[in-house]
């Protein structure tokens, strides 16, 4: 860890608040302009973000706490939660390993085709999730490339858990790598070169130097990756087959319940997803507050 910097040494001496703001060339507007703008921003936030979030919980609890837990105890709902957790438990570690190796390769070494690799990592961001799902139908479907062979050998990929995991891995591919690449580029290779010149092996350098440098950025990437893995709808919908109690993930289950007029149950499951999102946001904010220096390279997106 880098030694803590004493900010009081660099900051200007404490000034009364008002004059400082008014002297700031960027904020010369009259107070009413400032307040109106702040109010508009707050109103917008409340209307478009907070209100829907509240609505999810209000709708979920509309018919009482009992119905709420009844909906979550439903075997189909439990199966959906289980499948979502399994998919995330496989997709996130896979992308963790991939993301770290890709970021390491890209930022610490020079090789041919590097820019191609960077573009490839971005592919899942630029491709629509529906297309991502259809790619797997084309490959593993009965009329796809590998479909007939798989079916002959009794291996099910599409419309079962492996297909859902594959689709999840695909859409969450870039999260960790994208988080690490800017951070590691900024950190450069000086620390690693120092370690190597002192006689460390490649592995030792990675474990003792690189990993500690990126750990907070990495955790941040894992969080985002996990949130998306659990929340993904489009790609998973295409490859799921929608078999109740077997291949429905939580987002798919929410849609089905809603279409069946089971509004309370739909919002009960939705509220679980929302709570997960809130938890992720909470941890993310804490990370940003706690380790803002190390994250600053990647925070702006």
């Amino acid at each position: 860890m880098s030694p803590a910097i004493d900010h009081s040494l660099q900051d200007p001496p404490q000034l009364p608040r008002e004059p400082l703001i008014e002297k700031n060339a960027v904020i010369t507007e009259a107070p009413w302009v400032r307040r109106t703008l702040t109010a508009v921003a707050l109103l917008f936030l409340c209307g478009f973000l907070l209100l829907p979030l509240v609505a999810v919980f209000v709708e979920a609890l509309r018919n009482g706490v009992e119905t709420y837990f009844e909906a979550l105890k439903d075997p189909d709902a439990l199966a959906a939660i289980e499948l979502t957790l399994i998919a995330a438990a496989i997709a996130v570690p896979l992308n963790l390993v991939f993301g770290v190796s890709a970021a390491w390769a890209i930022t610490k070494f020079e090789f041919r085709g590097k820019s191609l690799l960077v573009s490839l990592i971005d592919l899942p961001f630029s491709v629509s999730p529906v297309v991502a799902g259809l790619i797997y139908v084309l490959i593993f479907g009965s009329h796809g490339w590998a479909g007939p062979w798989l079916s002959e050998h009794g291996i099910k990929v599409l419309f079962s858990t492996p297909g859902i995991v594959l689709a999840t891995v695909f859409v969450t591919f870039p999260f960790i790598a994208r988080e690490l690449i800017p951070l590691m580029t900024e950190q450069g290779t000086d620390d690693e070169q120092a370690a190597l010149s002192l006689g460390a092996t490649g592995w030792q350098t990675f474990w003792r130097v690189t990993l500690p440098n990126i750990k907070w950025g990495l955790l941040y990437g894992v969080l985002l990756c996990n949130a998306r893995a659990m929340g993904e709808f489009g790609a998973v919908s295409v490859v799921s087959g929608h078999i109740r109690g077997q291949t429905n993930t939580m987002p798919l289950h929410v849609e089905i319940l809603y279409n069946e007029y089971q509004f309370s149950a739909a919002f009960a499951v939705a509220s679980l997803l929302a709570m997960l999102a809130l938890l992720t946001l909470g941890i993310k904010s804490w990370l940003e507050w706690r380790h803002s220096d190390e994250l600053s390279a990647t925070r702006r997106h």
């Binding site: 009329h143 419309f159 089905i256």
Partner: peptide
């Protein structure tokens, strides 16, 4: 007895693509 529900034509498509 397992059930899968969806839009009729979409479901037919899934069966053709290998939903057994």
């Amino acid at each position: 007895l397992d059930q899968s529900h969806g839009g009729s034509s979409k479901q037919a498509r899934a069966v053709i693509d290998g939903l057994e």
